[in-house]
Structure formats: structure tokens, C-alpha cells
Design a protein around this nucleic acid. Structure first.
Length: 353
DNA sequence: GGCATTAAACACGGAGCGCT
DNA sequence: AGCGCTCCGTGTTTAATGCC
């Protein structure tokens, strides 16, 4: 009996704002033995399967070792693409009075101002989660994705992408207040409060002339605040006329270029359930528009393939066509926009602004 | 990419606190 | 009362796996 008698394959598609995936849905025919069921292997009694069941019969999860898996990587990129695609372009005025006319999403980096003293899981639970809670409550931030990474010095830092405009000074003050609970602001103050300008400059100087003026300015500002407002936040605004969503999703999921994968206080024991990324509930619902190819009255493949610069890639069990919506002809563009907006609206997704 | 499975982290909003 | 800040209960979401 050939496998084509045992299984029935029905072509299906899965469409997101930047790619179309074509796969087969597999049905097992009645006569076949249960061992041939392709999903049989998913059951934990399969001997070929890597053992994930511990002695008390509970399913154990393999340790992520602080590296994002291929699967998680794909999901993360997908969420950022949805977030950017569905974001509205809006006018915002910064705290300092600067105008941004086409703000779509913001890209924030949150760091620690001193050497990390607590295991990463504690920082995430007690500090970063509190920041998210406050931002949700105070700015109505609803749609966002975050990702945890380690700096070369072993300190954890967090990236946050959202379609709500978050002002640098606003976030910095909240984040620093939260960090002060763990003594991180005090640690920073202790490091700088007794430094003279020359000591400060020699600490950071890399021998360039204009660097000195900058450092002197920073020194003066730090001194004025009594070193109570360390620069723990970096904010980048993504404006609609820049095609930067790719940059973000690459930046977000790039492999760590250093050997540092975690803090020295972290180990498998205290970090096995540490999340490396997460997103808002609004975004977790957004996956892809999918259906059987024959169930729709338009040819999704040729539609997408006709977009300029579309790239077709064949994998072992699926075929994926990557495209950029903005390069599509007007009627394809509007067809896709309509599809995606209807899909997200039906799931209750509300873009900010 | 889709499918099923599981424990445990997380999102989220309601409610509580103290201060003005 | 109104705001800034914190805590907590509950239900939702994630992760790896191996086949097509």
C-alpha cells in the first residue's frame, strides 16, 4: 500500500502580511493501521521520541538555554510584522516639543544602570512586568511585543515594540523608580557621585575631541541630578515612510554576537521557566489567514507571486512565498489590505491612535 | 506552516494603598 | 475624589516535538 492510499492530502494556505505558506493538510484513511497515523508520534508513548516524561509522569520541557528557538523566532517575527502592518500613522509631539508626523511604532530598549544583582527571572517578574503593567494602565498601551536579551557585560536588557507613542522621559522616570527598589539607582550614584570631571571623562573617553564636549555635558547633567536619572531607556520611533519593520524584526531576533547568553546569577534551575519574549493578548491572537486553497474563489498563489520582487522558497514540507505589500499593484494591495484588516478586526484587534 | 499536548509564566483589570 | 503606585486572582498563552 503506497502512502498515497493511506493518506489524503488537501492543499491549504496560510497568509500573513509578508508571506504566503502553502502546505498540505493530512488525513489518515480509515483502513490504515494506527501506527501509520502521522500524529501518533505526538503521543508520549512513542519510543522514538526524545524522553520528555519525568518519573512522576509529568511532561517536562527542555531548557531553552537562553536561546530563542527557531519556532519562537518565527512567532516573534510574525507578531512584529502584524504590529507594524496594522499600526496607524499618527502625529505626536514629544515631551521636548519635537514633532513626529508619521509615527507608527516605537522601539524601546530598557537597561540596568549598574551591575545586575538579581537573577534575571526576578528582574523580569518584579521590575519589567511592573513596568509593563504601569505602561498599560497609564498610556493605554495595548499592542506590544517584548524580548529579553543579554548585554556583553552579562546584564539583562529588554526590547519593547509598541504602536503607542511612549515618551523617553516618561518611561525613563517610571523605569528608574522601579529599579530603585533593587538599589540599582543607588549603585549608579555611588559609582559617579565622587568622580571629578576629568575622572569621568577618562572613564569614557575614546580620544576623540568632540567626545569631550559631549562627556562634559553629560557630566554636568548627571551632577545636577545628583546622578539620580541614569539613561536606562533608549527610544526609537519608526515612521511610516521608512521600511524599518524588517530591521526591527531582524534586530529583535538576531543571534547574540557575544558569548554571553545569560547572567552569572542565572542557571538552569532558576531560569528554566524564564520567558525570552512575549506579546500582548491582542497580538497573540493574530496568526495567519488560513483555509483550504479550494475553499476560496481566488488564487492566492498567483496573486502573491505577481507582486514585484516576490520570492518563492521550497522547504521540505511546505512552500513559502515572501513578498512586500507596498510593492504590489493597487488592486492587489487593496485586496490584501481588506483581507488583513477584516481578519484583525474580527479578532477584536484595535490599533493605537 | 499545521497539528496535539502540558505546566507554568504571563496579561490584564479590579481593587487597594497613601497622598494631595 | 482623583491620582500615582502596587498587588493579586484568573484565564490565556507559550514552548518543543516529529510527521506531512
Amino acid at each position: 500500500m503506497s502512502k498515497y492510499d493511506r493518506y489524503t492530502f488537501i492543499p491549504q494556505f496560510s497568509l500573513t502580511p509578508n508571506k504566503l505558506a502553502l502546505t498540505n493538510k493530512v488525513f489518515v484513511n480509515q483502513e490504515s493501521n494506527s501506527v501509520d497515523n502521522p500524529y501518533y508520534d505526538c503521543k508520549s508513548d512513542n519510543p522514538n521520541r526524545i524522553k520528555r516524561v519525568s518519573s512522576n509522569n509529568k511532561v517536562t520541557r527542555q531548557f531553552h538555554n537562553f536561546k530563542i528557538s527557531q519556532n519562537a523566532h518565527r512567532n516573534l517575527k510574525n507578531k512584529i510584522n502584524w504590529l507594524y502592518f496594522l499600526s496607524k500613522s499618527k502625529y505626536v509631539k514629544t515631551y521636548r516639543g519635537k514633532e513626529i508626523f508619521n509615527f507608527r511604532i516605537g522601539f524601546l530598549t530598557l537597561t540596568l544602570p549598574a551591575k545586575q544583582k538579581h537573577p534575571t527571572i526576578e528582574i523580569t517578574k518584579e521590575y519589567f512586568n511592573q513596568l509593563l503593567t504601569e505602561l498599560r494602565q497609564r498610556t493605554k498601551m495595548q499592542n506590544y511585543v517584548w524580548r529579553l536579551e543579554f548585554q556583553k557585560n552579562g546584564n539583562v536588557h529588554y526590547h519593547l515594540v509598541t504602536d503607542t507613542y511612549l515618551d523617553f522621559y516618561f518611561v525613563r522616570d517610571i523605569w528608574n523608580r522601579i529599579l530603585s527598589k533593587g538599589g540599582y539607582i543607588k549603585d549608579y550614584q555611588d559609582r559617579f557621585k565622587d568622580l571629578s570631571l576629568m575622572e569621568y571623562v577618562s572613564k569614557f573617553n575614546n580620544n576623540s575631541k568632540d567626545n569631550f564636549n559631549q562627556l562634559a555635558k553629560r557630566y554636568a547633567l548627571g551632577k545636577k541630578n545628583n546622578w539620580s536619572k541614569p539613561n536606562t531607556v533608549d527610544v526609537k520611533s519608526v515612521v511610516s515612510n521608512k521600511s524599518i519593520s524588517n530591521y526591527i524584526s531582524k534586530y529583535f531576533s538576531k543571534d547574540s554576537d557575544s558569548n554571553v547568553y545569560c547572567n552569572e546569577l542565572d542557571n538552569e534551575d532558576n531560569s528554566k521557566n524564564l520567558r525570552l519574549w512575549f506579546c500582548s493578548r491582542s497580538l497573540s491572537q493574530l496568526k495567519s489567514i488560513s483555509n483550504y486553497c479550494e475553499a476560496i474563489d481566488w488564487d492566492c498563489r498567483s496573486l502573491v507571486e505577481s507582486i514585484k520582487d516576490a520570492k518563492v522558497k521550497y522547504y521540505r514540507y511546505c512552500c513559502v512565498i515572501y513578498f512586500e505589500i507596498k510593492k504590489a499593484s493597487n488592486w492587489i494591495k487593496s485586496k490584501l489590505y481588506k483581507l488583513f484588516h477584516e481578519y484583525s478586526r474580527n479578532l477584536g484587534y484595535i490599533p493605537s491612535g
